[in-house]
Amino acid sequence: METIEIGQSDLKSSRVGLGTWAIGGWQWGGTDEAQSIATIRAAVERGITLVDTAPVYGFGTSEELVGKALAEGGLRDKIVLATKVGLDWTDGDGVKRNSKPERLRAELEDSLRRLQTDTIDLYQIHWPDHRTPLEETAATLETFRKEGKIRAIGVSNFSPAQMDTFRSACRLDAVQPPYNLFEREMEADVLPYAKDSGLTLLTYGALCRGLLSGKMSKDRTFEGDDLRQTDPKFQSPRFEAYLEAVSELDRLARERFDRSVLALAVRWVLDQGPTIALWGARRPDQLDAVGDIDGWRLDDPTKAEIEAILARCVPDQLAPDFMAPPE
């Protein structure tokens, strides 16, 4: 599998990483421990060497499952372990942003325990907290790095201006924005900023919450706390428009490359710059197509045809703003 260095750190990762938001169960209709652990191990078997998680994914559940899978399988040394910090749900009033130094310290120790490790490879601020100076947050993470408890620092959902301020107090190696064929806001600012600044992009939502998997139909329903119940992309009539785009993209991928739309969507993300595509999976079989990503590229005529399909089917694409936690 293709690899990439993460910023200026000494970390090297596969260009496809395993995203474990869905494994945590919260906003994804629950979780299955045995199946989740099997999925994590299957990812490593397929050549994936980065696993990305967060405390808020199931309020500790995702981190616990990742830690258990890596420890019991003797896999910790084979992967770049990435998690996040800076969200707080402890007051019982929903999830809020909190990057105060004491909260970061408490989360760090909890994550180390749940992940069953002494060091987190990539530690990322999950969302900017406007009540806490960014320089203070960065300095706190720099302290963690000097203590040897983390190896590299990243941010998620930050603007270039926020990253500039953050970088005044520590070395920043990575940024994690949402990015896929249907959610491309970061092309206007975060992507060029990362290229100019030597940052690696861990892009989440490469398959747009399953929309680009090629496995959905207009009859698909979402139950429980599944966040797709409130995602406007999955509401009629927009859902049908996005599915039409997926159908045309799938036809293009199969006729031109003998690949699926899923492989096309991930390959497109990788071809945009210094990117790692986070591939969310809940079952081992959802990783079967990982081997279809390497060994080819999208040529300019294909990229132009992709743009034409998107312009024709979904001319007013929607941003993923609905996922942002409150200030």
Rank of each mutant, 00 (worst) to 15 (best):
G7A: 10
G7Y: 06
G7T: 10
L11D: 03
K12F: 14
S13Q: 13
S13D: 13
R15D: 13
V16K: 05
L18Y: 09
A22C: 11
G25Y: 06
D32Y: 10
S36D: 13
I37E: 07
T39E: 10
I40A: 06
R41P: 10
R41V: 09
V44R: 12
E45I: 06
D52I: 04
A54K: 06
T61C: 08
S62A: 15
S62Y: 05
E63Q: 14
E72G: 05
R76V: 09
R76N: 12
I79M: 07
L81P: 11
L81C: 11
A82T: 14
K84A: 10
D88V: 05
D88A: 09
D91N: 14
G92P: 09
G94K: 09
G94R: 09
V95W: 10
N98Q: 07
L104A: 10
R114T: 07
I120W: 10
Q124K: 13
R131Q: 15
T137A: 00
T137G: 00
A139S: 14
T143L: 07
T143M: 07
E147Y: 02
R151V: 08
A152F: 10
I153L: 05
S156H: 12
N157I: 11
A161D: 14
Q176G: 03
Y179G: 01
N180W: 00
N180M: 02
F182Y: 09
V190S: 04
L191K: 00
A194F: 01
A194G: 01
L199E: 01
R209V: 12
R209L: 14
S217V: 04
K218F: 02
R220Y: 01
F222I: 02
L227R: 01
L227N: 06
Q229M: 03
Q229F: 01
T230Q: 12
P232N: 03
F239R: 04
L243N: 04
A245E: 03
A245K: 03
V246C: 02
R251F: 07
S260T: 15
V261N: 04
L264I: 07
R267Q: 10
V269I: 12
D271N: 11
Q272I: 06
G273D: 06
P274F: 02
T275L: 15
R283Y: 09
R283V: 07
P284R: 02
Q286K: 05
W296R: 06
L298A: 09
D299C: 10
D300E: 15
T302N: 12
E307Q: 15
A311H: 12
D316C: 05
L318N: 13
F322Y: 14
M323Q: 14
A324M: 11
